[in-house]
């Protein structure tokens, strides 16, 4: 059966996620992998997997990218839309749970709080200068305790005593955890204490001065951690929902946005899976054309510059169009 799918790619600091939705907006494919510092490789792997799983009858009718690596990913695949992850997450969540009011999203390097009203983002906050409460820190602690990260939550739920741990800063949290460990508290208690501390930090930091209203949805890689979910529910005294595809919500949002965009434009700018064989080499230089001294980032494919950003006056962007024209001729 011939079918069309819309693909969303979320290139985050820690993980790269891909999701595909059919034209009926049903999710047909999801993929979650660690970026390991090489987003381009991760995207390629994911897209080949998509091709394998969905078969040759499926065509990609549109692509959207999001996450901190959205721009490069967008150039590489020829995305129809490149969107920030806050909007992408909100789009995905309101699609799955239209009455949602508060979204907690905790990823590898940052955490976000998104407030929604009538399906529209009305306010948001992102952690500012500190990694406390993000996936990377939990990863680090799991490693230190010799515990696989996927068992972190399960372990936390076994806790029986309440252990106080400072959540304001990772340095304090870690020294607190070590102190408590030397007093002989169980691993489970310490881990649950950490979960509570992170949630407290999240709500104090991001929720400062904001009204958090139910229904609550918790998503992002860290939502796999049942300990954090329990700590959220304890703190808010409300149920917190973790959606089925909590770890790829950004990618789902990007896929939905790509679908909307293609509906509007009528065609897709997707370069096709074959284009993935091309090597993309990003580089940067300082343009010394004027006092602005812009840091210009350019991406080359087969030694032809295909994208440039960072130049304020458009001097380098102009050149690209000419190259493209020549190619066509």
């Amino acid at each position: 059966m011939l079918s069309e799918v819309y693909v969303g790619i979320d290139v985050g600091s820690v993980s790269t996620n891909i999701a595909a939705i059919g034209s009926d907006q049903k999710i047909v494919f999801t993929y979650y992998t660690r970026t390991n510092g090489q987003p381009l490789v991760a995207i390629k792997k994911g897209l080949y997997r998509l091709k394998d799983e969905l078969g040759d009858d499926t065509t990609i009718a549109g692509v959207g990218t999001t996450g901190s690596g959205r721009q490069l990913a967008g150039v590489m695949v020829g995305a129809d839309i490149v969107k920030n992850e806050i909007t992408a997450h909100a789009v995905a969540t309101t699609n799955i749970k239209p009455d949602v009011r508060t979204i907690f999203e905790i990823g590898g390097q940052d955490s976000k709080l998104i407030l929604v009203k009538d399906g529209m983002v009305v306010d948001f906050a992102m952690n500012t200068v500190c990694a406390a409460g993000t996936g990377s820190f939990l990863d680090h602690q799991a490693e230190r305790l010799g515990l696989p990260i996927d068992r972190f939550g399960e372990m936390a739920l076994k806790s029986k005593t309440n252990v106080q741990i400072a959540g304001r800063c990772t340095v304090f949290a870690e020294s607190d955890m070590i102190a408590k460990q030397q007093y002989g508290f169980s691993k489970a208690d310490i881990i649950m204490g950490l979960c509570r501390a992170l949630v407290r930090n999240f709500i104090n930091n991001l929720g400062r001065g904001k009204m958090l209203q139910p229904p609550f949805v918790f998503q992002g890689g860290v939502a796999a951690n049942t300990g954090i979910k329990a700590a959220f529910e304890e703190e808010l005294k409300q149920t917190v929902t973790v959606p089925d595809y909590f770890d790829v919500m950004g990618a789902i949002g990007a896929a939905i946005l790509a679908w909307e965009e293609v509906e509007q434009k009528g065609c897709s700018s997707f370069r096709g899976l074959d284009s993935l064989k091309t090597d993309f080499t990003p580089s940067s230089f300082i343009c010394e054309g004027c006092a602005n001294m812009c840091e210009v980032i350019k991406v080359e494919a087969n030694e032809v510059t295909i994208a440039v950003w960072g130049d304020r006056c458009g001097k380098w962007k102009e050149n690209i169009k000419q190259v493209k024209l020549k190619e066509i001729i």
Partner: peptide, 8 residues
């Protein structure tokens, strides 16, 4: 990211 989301 913040600025784009804000404009959205």
């Amino acid at each position: 990211t913040r600025i784009e989301a804000f404009v959205d």
